[in-house]
Design a protein around this nucleic acid. Structure first.
Lengths: 399, 399
DNA sequence: CATAGTTCGTTCAATAAACAAAGAAATTAT
DNA sequence: ATAATTTCTTTGTTTATTGAACGAACTATG
């Protein structure tokens, strides 16, 4: 009932636990003395808390380090098998799930058909998928630390509510609470682009970036925003609708009912449609278009370059507004290749405010098949490593 | 050196102190028992901490409340005269300063000429202004809790550095540190639009909004972004450059060197220039144009309406990306009147994604003369009421 | 090889902040 | 006048961090 985060002993402990857990994760292999130095905590505290982490199985004493003239350090490391998580991506017609350890290494993978659009039957199907994953991986059920679910549409992460989903037609479904009562594990639900965004923060080694943007190109165009290390979701999960930014008031009709949305000009379907009109009616799908462009067809290249220019211009506008350090482009559309992306980069640099983006990087991400399920899994992993002072977002549904 | 916020007793105390101070501020008049109820803290803790706040002079026992069948409550209230702050807005040629209490009520106001653009002499002038304000208000110097400064350009708030300022030509000036060593008070520096944005959060009574955007129209077009209750400043203070979002690649040349920036189409000067070309060469300034439009001149109205449409469309795009609850339009340009703002609203609703902005409010703010200095002052007030877990932003310059 | 020096980790008492419970204060209800 | 009620304070308990001392395990050196 009271969402205020007040100060008490549990909070102290929880903060310091999180600091140490994260330090051990980012350092990889680290002694207690080094942790004292890094965190500023006292040796006694480090001993006490690491002791508890070892007891919980999240950390272990991995090896003895080399002495530097005194007692050799005992090197601590994260135990990736200290807990397991499951990530599930819901799609039209089927769901893909992955069971991973705390390093997001996949231990089991599976998918299941979603025949029915009714959410009650879908819940049963999801539970079946989870059980299959647990069974095939052989982990004890007790070790499952959480379940993350990513799906398209507007999702209220804080309350765990699917506000609207285009495929299933769901509206205001309390999916989190339903699954939690059935499965007795913490459940986290988010928009699929946000889960993908989170995975960029958690799956890349090295220090995680704290201000970046992920843009996905595929069926639609999505955007995930990370601000101060947190995924920004907007008033009601509606942030990041880059696909429906209006580019041309007289443009083609978009699914959303408006004209000239970016998505109506740059998505898979839009490109294929345009290429069919202006290049060749034989083009069946995006791959044909890419193929043609790579073979030197000027018309095909022109279609891709124009789309890239439109996207680059919008990215520039976003940089003007949000000034992020890094922009990651991901999704099926990353296979569009150099013609497209060099147009993106050129348009970006032409349109961004002078002096603003001198060290802003645009990175095109290699595209793996598992990435959506991994993203959903990292939703849970992120939660495990989060400090309590960042955790306030998750609020109970009082009803 | 160690920016990590670790858990210890000082942190607990500081968190709870902040919770109570904020609760007293928002409640206005509140008993200890009510605070127990609101905050979830124990009665003993509330007694202890409010005791300390009373000792510090920030809170006092204001009155005795009505009994509800038992001992009557002692009502606590914030003592607005428990501390004082000074806000200064730097402009081309002069600086305006205001000394206010903790309610942002102005007790003294003054301005001073900035003859020289050299920053060393400017610092001396600012110190003179501060001293004059302290003297004329008659407060004891010890009660001055901080100094806030707002100025145009790119400012690194966290490090207190003016990265670039258009009027003075300053570059990477450590203004905060210089002033702090001279004045022995905490100093906070920020972009002027950000200070204005903060003041919207602090000067409006009632519960402060946590996700909103402030757009200023005047000489330029600026934007302040509040996300999760915090002003978002971007990678290096460069966020919010709405004025340099590219609207038309073939548009007029902007000060920044690019073509077709929003600012080159909608700012004061741009409108006057266009009106001179297309309506009448006699138009001297924006007020003439507004006057003409209000008298029913179709051409003048057309100029304003077109500008409004352009702005409304960009606001829609920002809402698509950030999904804020509230959009506040402020600045000198708010006097442009209904022709302009109804065009803004129409274009906004036409272009925003369907279903996204059903309860998003666009508010045009009345425009006061003191608002810039007040904004700078609220920079300090905000800091006083901030919880330590939100304070990490301010980092020392290690050099 | 014995001793000193160094580094790492643990133990122990001290400290302080929240908390629970009981008590004191000041009112209304009967 | 007494009981009930609400508000606030006091007292003692709990517990997490901390500093300091100590033990453990190594290297350096004569």
């Amino acid at each position: 009932m009271n969402p205020i985060l007040r100060g008490n002993r549990a909070l102290i402990r929880s903060i310091n636990r999180s600091i140490l857990l994260n330090a051990i994760k980012t350092q990889g292999l680290v002694s207690r003395a080094a942790l004292v130095h890094i965190t500023g905590l006292s040796p006694a505290t480090v001993t006490a808390i690491t002791g508890r982490l070892i007891e919980e199985g999240l950390v272990f004493e991995k090896a003895t380090g080399d002495s530097t003239g005194g007692r050799p350090p005992i090197m601590l490391a994260l135990n990736p098998r200290g807990g397991f998580v499951i990530g599930i991506k819901l799609m039209e017609g089927h769901a893909v799930g992955a069971l991973t350890d705390l390093n997001a290494t996949i231990l089991a993978k599976d998918s299941i058909e979603l025949a029915d659009k009714q959410y009650e039957t879908s819940v049963e199907t999801l539970i079946a998928l989870v059980n299959r994953l647990i069974h095939s991986s052989g982990i004890p059920t007790k070790q499952l630390m959480g379940l993350g679910i990513g799906l398209a549409g507007v999702v209220d992460f804080a309350h765990g509510i699917v506000k609207q989903n285009p495929f299933f037609g769901w509206r205001n479904i309390l999916l989190r609470d339903v699954l939690e009562t059935r499965m007795h594990v913490p459940v986290y639900i988010d928009n699929d682009v946000n889960t993908l965004t989170l995975s960029e923060k958690w799956l890349n080694r090295g220090q995680p970036e704290d201000n970046f943007i992920v843009i996905t190109i595929g069926r639609g165009i999505g955007m995930g925003i990370v601000i101060n290390g947190e995924v920004y979701r907007g008033k009601g999960g509606g942030a990041g609708e880059l696909g429906h930014v209006m580019v041309d008031p007289n443009g083609p009709l978009c699914d959303c009912g408006k004209r000239g949305c970016l998505e109506s000009l740059v998505s898979d379907r839009a490109l294929v449609a345009e290429a069919r009109r202006n290049v060749s009616p034989d083009i069946a799908d995006l791959d044909d278009l890419i193929q043609l462009a790579s073979e030197g067809d000027a018309g095909a290249a022109q279609v891709l370059a124009h789309a890239g220019t439109l996207l680059g211009r919008q990215i520039a506008n976003i940089v003007n507004v949000l000034d992020p350090k890094l922009i990651i482009i991901s999704g099926e559309g990353t296979r569009m290749g150099d013609v497209f992306f060099s147009a993106v980069r050129t348009a970006f640099h032409d349109c961004v405010m002078t002096g603003l983006a001198e060290d802003t990087e645009i990175r095109v991400n290699s595209w793996g098949d598992d990435i959506w399920a991994l993203g959903a899994a990292s939703l849970v992993i992120a939660e495990i490593f989060k400090s309590p002072i960042q955790k306030e977002e998750r609020t109970e549904n009082t009803k």
